[in-house]
């Protein structure tokens, strides 16, 4: 059963210090000296900010680049290092992404063991958003608040956070007090504000409305510069490359994030390529998110986080694509 507490905002940093002192590794949104908010290891509680980070927590459970194994003197040595950690200050669009990664990486015939290790060792402390972010459209999908899949979920209610607890693992009486009916109502109102502030997109049946044969793909293809930012920033993108590197007398097999917007993603030996142009690569990206994944898993491979919109240097916008195929203009 879920329990509900609250914590005073004044006590948040002290609570973080307490967790750090307990020996937990903690990752969360940190403000850098240049003013950007990056999801990374929290060394000093003062650096923590309750803001959505640019990159999100995906790389903690699914690193940009990691060693699968080392090969030395004819032996394969599995790379297994991992730690128990807290992801503190995640957003719902990010953790919903984890749930989608779980479906692909853990629920098929074969499991991605490396992902599973990191995923199952990560305790989630989610911060549900109470304000619409600039590019987000999460209310088209799951909304700003998680229903499950966390240890604690914080919701801003003014001077305090309401704290939903799926378990008591991180509850410390010193910092948490009982929440009143009023606090719970306030949290609900704040969450509802996001629904009011955000535009909800006409996503229904998009998989039936979207078309291959449409000028939009060439139009967008003319702009795309194959930077891959849309994929790398996406909490639901999981595609990876595998390659070997030699360092001294050791060979490392590496896996690294890949991007379906890159020419080499689908290129076969001899420069055969089923996706020769930008248009066909953009079709792949949007069809995977809006059609293929829906057909295979019953939901769209997007949590409305808005990062691909924010980070695309040429303003290719998934919201525009959804609206366009639902009868809108481009």
């Amino acid at each position: 059963m879920m329990k509900v507490y609250k914590i005073s905002k004044d006590k948040l940093k002290a609570y973080l210090s307490y967790l750090l002192n307990k020996g937990y590794s903690i990752y969360g949104p940190v403000k850098t000296t240049s003013g950007d908010v990056i999801f990374s290891k929290i060394e000093d509680p003062e650096h923590f900010v309750d803001e959505k980070s640019t990159n999100g927590p995906k790389s903690v459970v699914f690193p940009e680049r990691e060693i699968i194994f080392r090969y030395r003197e004819g032996k394969i040595i599995e790379e297994k290092s991992d730690e128990r950690r807290i992801l503190f200050g995640t957003r719902t669009c990010e953790i919903e992404g984890f749930r989608m990664l779980d479906d692909v990486l853990l629920k098929g015939k074969y499991k991605d063991i490396s992902y599973e290790r990191k995923r199952s060792n990560s305790i989630i402390v989610n911060f549900a958003c109470t304000k619409a972010c600039k590019y987000g459209f999460c209310t088209t999908f799951q909304g700003p608040k998680l229903k499950n899949g966390f240890s604690l979920q914080f919701i801003d209610i003014g001077d305090d956070y309401l704290v939903e607890a799926m378990n008591e693992e991180l509850i410390v009486p010193e910092y948490f007090t009982e929440a009143s009916e009023e606090d719970i109502k306030k949290a609900e109102e704040n969450i509802n504000n996001v629904y009011k502030e955000m535009e909800q997109l006409p996503i229904k049946d998009i998989e039936k409305k979207i078309k291959f044969n449409d000028e939009i793909w060439n139009k967008l293809g003319n702009y795309c510069i194959n930077c891959g930012a849309c994929n790398y920033s996406c909490p639901t993108c999981f595609c990876f490359d595998v390659y070997d590197v030699k360092i001294g007398n050791e060979i490392l097999r590496i896996r690294e994030w890949d991007s379906c917007l890159l020419e080499g993603f689908s290129r076969l030996a001899g420069f055969n390529n089923p996706r020769k142009d930008n248009a066909s690569r953009l079709i792949q990206r949007f069809y995977h998110k809006l059609v293929y994944h829906k057909l295979n898993y019953g939901y769209y491979l997007c949590t409305g986080c808005g990062r691909c919109i924010e980070q695309c240097p040429v303003n290719i916008d998934i919201r525009d694509v959804i609206k366009y195929f639902s009868g809108g203009e481009l």
Binding site: V104, L105, G108, K109, Y110, D112, F238, C239, F240, D241, V242, R255, D258, C260, F265, S266, R267, L268, P274, Q284, Y287, H288, V291, Y292, L295, N296
Partner: peptide
């Protein structure tokens, strides 16, 4: 035949529409 990197349905390279050629 499609480009394959994992062979087990998780790397995303080999898709033909909704299908993964490897799995």
């Amino acid at each position: 035949e499609r480009k394959m990197k994992c062979g087990i349905g998780i790397c995303g390279h080999c898709n033909l529409g909704r299908f993964y050629v490897c799995k």
